[in-house]
Amino acid sequence: MPEISDLKLERYALGELPAAERHAIEALLKTDPALRERLNALEASNAAILRKTPPEIFAARLASRQRREAAESAMRARPDSSSALGFAAWKPLLGGLALLAVLAVPVSRTGLLGPRPGLGVSETEIRGVPASSLPEPPASTPATRGSPAAPSAPPGSPEPAPPAADPSGVAATTPAPDEGGVRLKGLEPHLAIFRKTPAGSEPLHPGQKTRPGEVLRIGYQSAGFPYGAILSVDGNGNVTRHWPASGERAARLEGGEALLPSSFELDAAPDYERFYFVVSKKPFALDPLLRSLHEHESLPEPGKALAGKEIRIVRFELLKETGI
């Protein structure tokens, strides 16, 4: 007599077996006390699980988890009003602020992407950047999404270098990587994503709607984590490496804020574009991350599965309007 698998028994209990298989199990149940016992145990387990976590409690927990994840994502990723990485439209707005910062507080403690609300002040100073030094995105020649035109590590390099210093760029104004891998207390790594507009650019927030053809540029705050990677997966399951563009290991990050050296154009993939910024104190291989994205279109929950390994995962999801 063939062993009835747990899956088959589960499906029988739920009434989801095809008629022939259902009848076969019903016949077996009359003659096989062990199978009857398994079914009874399954039904008792159902009741115990629902008693322990009733549906309304589960639904509330799930709603809470959704809110928490959305809030965490927004906290990590939302650029504040001084988040002017890269695009010209923010120069007029920031000019005054930056000038004030330069004149009144020669060394800003917040940096371009700003402090995260409620997270305190960094112990390590990060220089503010005058608005006039903000780089222009190469919007006239954006890379196709999936192959951002970023510099790659030289052959044989153990890990990719930080984003190349843009002649007018942020990279040149940010501090050197924290060689000891000492994190900046109170500062969290996060992403900032900007969209090109006719007038210049605008920062995007998690959950914001975007369209195919729009040109985006990514910036990050490493918060002192020396190694990292920026990847994304779209609604078709296609995975894109934004940084580093090549190599098998995570890139060496700028010690504070940096703007990736190229912009890219969104393609027509539907539903969403989900970005991940993974940082670590130690070098790490990209392959497991890429595999996870290929297989699951996601990475482990931020701060959960990789806890204790000094790895942080930041997620930033944009929605896509494809007109379908």
Binding site: D6, E10, L14, L42, S45, N46, I49, L50, T53, P55, E56, F58, A59, L62, A63
Partner: peptide, 22 residues
């Protein structure tokens, strides 16, 4: 909606929970 979610959980939650614990 919440009601659907509760219904789905009531029907399939124990199966998933058992599988995950297994």
């Amino acid at each position: 909606d919440t009601r659907n979610l509760e219904e789905w959980y009531r029907r399939y939650g124990p199966l998933v929970q058992r599988r995950c614990f297994q």
